[in-house]
Design a protein around this nucleic acid. Structure first.
Lengths: 310, 310
DNA sequence: TTGACAGGCTAATCCAGTTTAGCTTAGACT
DNA sequence: AGTCTAAGCTAAACTGGATTAGCCTGTCAA
């Protein structure tokens, strides 16, 4: 690798002068235009690439931030990652995306690794992370942001969709369509996202004064569990005429159960799901979705982190 | 941040000794067990986190590698990323995933940025990258790997599925099912992946001596283009009874066209698509797919890169 | 009583940039 | 003649580890 020193030696200049030219400081430190030109030309010729590593070391800023998410398989998280990366790149940062798989041990290992790599900031969706680790991270003074869900009792900023409002939208929509007997298929209550979606659902139901709603809270937000739950729901008499489902996989599972039961959608049953299903229109899936602008969440997260870092 | 120096000062030891203990070198450099214990305890108490940055700087190895992919929205690439990251983490590396969006300028910028961050190795799917940039990268001596597709005339290793064999599988399957009149909907020929898939198709067709096959080569591998192409294909008389489609998005587009035409699948028309559609069974999509073990491709890529790096 | 060796540690150097605090020379001005 | 200033550059320090070379003391054998 070509270093500044090499350029300096070649031109019989000091490394300092080369640095001034290459970092554009020659406005402050008067350097003759001829020298500026010579330095630039030499840098180009030798294929000089400044070492962000050396700079990071000296400045104690790595110009890198990390995003640790639960499941890169879920379009929600890839969207967030793409949004965050775009914004990061525009600001000259490198984004490190880590997939924790919602696994406590991996989450911990990944965070430690990123700490050691001295990332300037961290965006985490705390699935299993306890307030102990978060508090420790904050004590270290590393800028730090939660995304999509937050640990209770820890006052660390969090960027997320208003899940309560999202549920309200779903209920409003179904009521407006004349389907007040809604069955809500919700994810596990140890995940904050689903707590909030359930809370929003309950509030909206109360606001509308709906009497014939039901709620199924699953142990895990999977297609399989949703399929089984919906099968039961459809056995009930009178059968609900609307289904509100708490995430993308559960919606697919629900759809499967509904088809297996031979019901028509949206004739017999209208379905609203949280999370966009990108292929819904391609496949002509008869479901409405509560769409979160995932890339915006990613962009906003990075921008918030940037503020915390300055 | 706590440094080795701080631990040393606290214990009235030299930084060297602390380093020896913390890196486990005290087997070589005799240090009394009492000192080892004291150092370990102090490190723990002070919450010492070794700076991977400082180490990277000094060793000229960052213990980070990068994976630059075309489209993180495509499950193929997220699968690869997850596989590569898992393997990287196990080896103590940090993986930086970048989304180039198949855009030449972004691809170039991202690669430059990673170069400057002194990643130890690079895995790229060269969409728009020319052999000039690749050759330059190799000249720099940075270990470097192509994935899924390779630039012609540049001898840089490439990890990918055997696309030719994949196409052969598709044709074999359809022939076995008694559907020799296959229409192949293929992606653009400036992308190597589709060149190979087309080549495989042609070879298989020849091997079987099929007479009634057709081929549509699209300008872009999108659902929209595929839908339009399939619409035309279905107008032909006699109509083909089998469809082989070159990637996931095109398969979804094709499916849509087939449905719009009111044909039954697989009754009137049997469909095989390259790339897995994860939701296919959930949605009871009547298509067969050529499944690539994407995480394995990711893992294998990282392992190959690791070999190149040592 | 010397010298060989082991035990237990330390000083100094290097990595590639950025930054601070100058240093030298020529010409202008007093 | 003296001194002030601007122009155009440079030396040295700093970042946090890893490493190389070696220092000092005590014990034991010849």
């Amino acid at each position: 690798m070509v270093r500044m020193k090499d350029i300096a030696r070649k031109l019989n200049l000091s490394q300092t002068t080369v640095s001034h030219v290459l970092t554009g400081k020659h406005e402050h430190y008067r350097i003759s235009p001829a020298t500026v030109e010579r330095v630039r030309k030499a840098a180009e010729e030798l294929g000089y690439r400044s070492s962000a590593l050396a700079r990071a070391f000296r400045d104690r800023r790595s110009y890198s931030v990390a995003l640790a998410v639960e499941d890169l398989t879920n379009p929600f998280w890839t969207g967030v990652a793409i949004g965050a990366e775009r914004e990061a790149e525009a600001e000259g940062y490198v984004l490190i995306v880590s997939n924790t798989g919602g696994n406590a041990e991996r989450e911990r290992r990944v965070i430690r690794m990123l700490q050691e790599h001295r990332v300037d900031g961290l965006i985490v969706s705390p699935v299993t992370v306890t307030d102990r680790l978060l508090t420790e991270l904050r004590a270290e003074g590393r800028p730090f942001l939660q995304i999509d869900r937050s640990v209770k009792g820890v006052d660390i900023p969090c960027v997320r969709t208003d899940h309560v409002a999202g549920s309200a939208m779903a209920v409003d929509h179904l009521v407006r369509r004349g389907r007040p007997d809604i069955a809500f298929v919700c994810g596990p209550q140890n995940v904050q996202t689903y707590q909030l979606r359930l809370e929003g659902f309950r509030k909206a139901v109360e606001r509308h004064g709906l009497k014939r709603t039901t709620t199924a809270v699953l142990d895990a937000a999977t297609a399989e569990q949703a399929q089984a739950a919906v099968r039961k729901i459809l056995d009930a008499r009178p059968r609900p005429t609307a289904l509100y489902v708490g995430n993308i996989w559960m919606t697919l599972g629900a759809l499967r159960a509904v088809r297996a039961a031979g019901l028509s959608v949206p004739g017999d049953l209208e379905i609203v799901g949280f999370d966009d299903i990108a292929e819904a229109d391609l496949l002509s899936l008869p479901v409405s979705t509560i769409v979160q602008d995932v890339e915006a969440i990613g962009r906003e997260s990075f921008r918030t982190l940037l503020k915390l870092m300055s």
